[in-house]
């Protein structure tokens, strides 16, 4: 594999992944609303409306249309724009995409990617600020990824597009301007189903979900300055979850703090907690801690909204509770 890399933002990584895969495989098409001004716009330099389909506002059906195209020889990417809109498409995603292979005993294949971007902490109020990853974890037949770095974003999106199963890709708009070195190899992939240890440590395992990563890293650096060596495990794939990496880390550190910006009840953190409690119980020397967004509708006013999401302070406080 080539070791060439260049600096790329998270947002550009999304565009580049799509461009490369569309060049590589003519069956890949992009379906979404206003793609000519949002993330898809640079693609119009290379492709035309045959493969870049700007759709009317009709989420359930254009998601289903993508599925129908996937059933019949194409490999669509369906962009649902803001993550709060995935509920409109939920019936087609859940009752069709996730189930058609199984229900037909393997006759049908659904090689489709659904992308949705979480917008939050920007005073967009309750109907635009959801982080819906947990809902879909309860649906067998879907793969779900939530990358938090430009490198992982590019590699996972490419892997999702090449995957023959339906994959939900949750992006985070708060990470759009993050920059990092990303390999230029057009076959660079990050495997679906593998978590990533971003920082090694031995005192506590910090499991980071989706866009929490920058704050988790910040907390880890702060803790290290205070003599606490935290290990940061970036989950990256929510389904299928990399239980092995999680359990290996907890076996080493004996303490787990899970940071997830979805709402507390039924969060990704809840499932991670259950896995660790069930399969790693004897490694633990303290209760598992979840640092999540509380169970409240997201308010508009920044005075109310800003304190809600996991912060470095809350992460450090959770660590202190278990040490």
């Amino acid at each position: 594999m080539s070791s060439q890399a260049r600096e790329l933002t998270y947002l550009k990584a999304i565009v580049e992944a799509q461009r490369e895969e569309m060049l590589r495989d003519e069956r890949v098409i992009l379906i979404g609303e206003n793609i000519d001004i949002y993330g898809g716009s640079p693609l119009f330099d290379t492709f035309d409306e045959k493969r870049l389909r700007n759709v009317p506002i009709s989420e359930n059906s254009f998601a289903g249309m993508g599925i129908g195209a996937a059933l019949t020889g194409l490999r669509p990417i369906v962009d649902l724009t803001i993550a709060s809109f995935v509920y409109l498409a939920a019936d087609q995603i859940i009752n069709q995409a996730a189930k058609l292979r199984y229900m037909t005993g393997g006759q049908l294949s659904v090689p489709i990617v659904f992308r949705a971007c979480t917008y939050y902490n920007i005073c967009n109020a309750a109907q635009h600020s959801d982080r819906p990853y947990p809902f879909f974890m309860n649906v067998p037949g879907l793969k779900i990824v939530a990358p938090a770095t430009p490198r992982d974003m590019k590699g996972l999106l490419k892997a999702a597009i090449r995957d023959d199963d339906p994959v939900l890709v949750f992006e985070d708009m708060n990470l759009w301007t993050q920059k990092a070195e990303v390999p230029t190899d057009p076959d660079f992939l990050v495997p679906i189903g593998k978590a990533d240890v971003k920082i090694e440590g031995s005192d506590v395992t910090l499991v980071s979900i989706a866009g929490c990563l920058p704050r988790v890293m910040g907390a880890a650096h702060g803790l290290r300055a205070g003599g606490i060596a935290a290990e940061v495990v970036d989950l990256r794939t929510l389904v299928p979850m990399d239980r092995q990496t999680l359990l290996e880390s907890v076996a080493k550190t004996h303490r787990a703090v899970i940071i997830d910006n979805s709402h507390r009840t039924g969060s990704v953190a809840s499932e991670v907690s259950a896995v660790i409690a069930e399969e790693g119980f004897h490694s633990l020397r303290a209760p598992i801690q979840r640092v999540t967004t509380p169970d409240v509708q997201i308010p508009y006013s920044a005075a109310l909204e800003k304190p809600l999401y996991p912060s470095e302070e809350r992460i450090v406080a959770a660590v202190k509770r278990v040490l």
Binding site: C123, N124, A125, A126, Q127, Q297, Y300, S301, A303, L304
Partner: peptide
């Protein structure tokens, strides 16, 4: 985003 807002600062511009 003020408490005296029509939605007590919870709704905002779109609501």
């Amino acid at each position: 985003g003020k408490e005296s807002g029509i939605c007590k600062g919870r709704g905002g511009s779109m609501h």
